[in-house]
Simulated assay, not measured.
Amino acid sequence: MKSYRVQTLIECIVRNYNNRKVVIWGKCDSSDMISKALYEQHGIVTEYFIDSNTNLLNGTTVRSVMEIDRKSNDIYVVIPLRYHKSIIERLTAFGYKEVNDYAYSSHKPISITKDKMDDYSYSDIFGNKIVGDISNCKVIFRGYNSTITIGNSTNIQENVEIYIDDDVNVSIGNNLTIFKNTKWNFLPDSLVTLGDNCIFEQDGELTCGRNAEITIGSNILFGCRYWIVASIQSRIKIGNDCLFSRDVMIRTNDGHSIFDINTKKNINSALKEQYKKSVIISDHVWVGAKCTCLYNTKIHSGSIVGAHSLVKREFPNNCIIAGSPAKIIRRDIAWSKENNRDNMDIVNEKYIHYTLEVN
């Protein structure tokens, strides 16, 4: 939990607990941090923790949530967790009133549509901002101090949702097009940059994890049902003038942990190694239908990835790669977005090069 979130919560507790016993909802790193800060700054001792996870309960320091039922006269509850409507409903049923009887570190998600903005601008008391035309998009702020900036001539269809957590910075260029049924999710401290003339077709998902970064250049097309995931502390970088066909997956993690039985160590997703995980796709790369690009992928400019390929290493410029795992099947090629052309004059000269070897 960020220091400013801790201090804001501490101040709310001190103002409202009125010498009642302090109970913290959720046994996790954030709750331990709040408990320690309360004692060190104000001498307030945490009576106990409560949790809905029965595996954590020990009957003394961690108890069932039922322990606080109908005890608002004696107990002040602190919730240092992501906002959950079910927690609010449970507290209300137990007879607790917001602020007077409990402090929640997260605010209720704020859903912003174009009609709630003032001349292409929005800001709130939590430090969140929108600058630009969000068209038919719905932006949902779930945290604090985040900014999304969008350029001119936006075309966003219905049922497009962008979820934004704490300290997120999103910068989008001009002429953005997003088709219907799209969900983008930006976790705390993520950084997302999109260039001009980007098109994202329908039914796609894009997620930028905590402390992760996604950079996408200009003149980009993603076909329908794309799935882009930059996991915690990792990076995805896509150059200019690229084409991605339908059902393309780009991700910087495996989704689950794998361990070496002998050493008992994580061999695929240790947190300290995450910053090394990246997918880099250079300018003018064409990725075919149903391809998967995993971490360690690096594709140099002017290349083509054949349909249904699995990519997880570096490949040179101006070549065709295909297969699972992908391998080079042809070198010294150039390609154009236009179909049925008889000569190479249509190809921009800056993308015509002989294939060079990579280390």
Rank of each mutant, 00 (worst) to 15 (best):
M1E: 02
K2R: 11
E11S: 07
V14W: 03
N16Q: 06
R20I: 10
K21Y: 14
V22K: 09
D32Q: 15
D32T: 12
K36W: 10
Y39V: 02
H42I: 09
I44C: 09
E47D: 12
F49C: 00
I50E: 00
L56K: 14
M66T: 03
I75G: 01
I79W: 00
P80Y: 00
S86P: 04
E89T: 10
E98D: 08
A103H: 00
A103V: 00
S111I: 02
T113S: 13
M117I: 11
I125Y: 02
I125V: 10
D133A: 01
C137D: 00
K138C: 15
I140E: 03
I140C: 05
G143F: 05
G143K: 05
T154W: 02
I156A: 00
V160W: 07
E161S: 13
N169K: 11
W184Q: 05
L191F: 15
V192L: 05
G195S: 11
D196V: 08
C198N: 12
Q202G: 04
R210Y: 07
I216G: 04
L221N: 12
L221D: 03
R225Y: 14
Y226C: 14
I228E: 05
F244D: 06
F244R: 04
R251C: 15
N253M: 09
G255K: 06
K276L: 15
V279D: 08
H284D: 08
W286E: 03
K290W: 07
Y295S: 04
Y295C: 05
N296H: 10
I299K: 03
I304D: 04
G306C: 03
S309L: 08
N317A: 06
N318L: 10
I329K: 13
I329Y: 12
W335R: 04
E338M: 05
N339A: 10
R341G: 09
E349A: 04
E357P: 11
E357R: 08
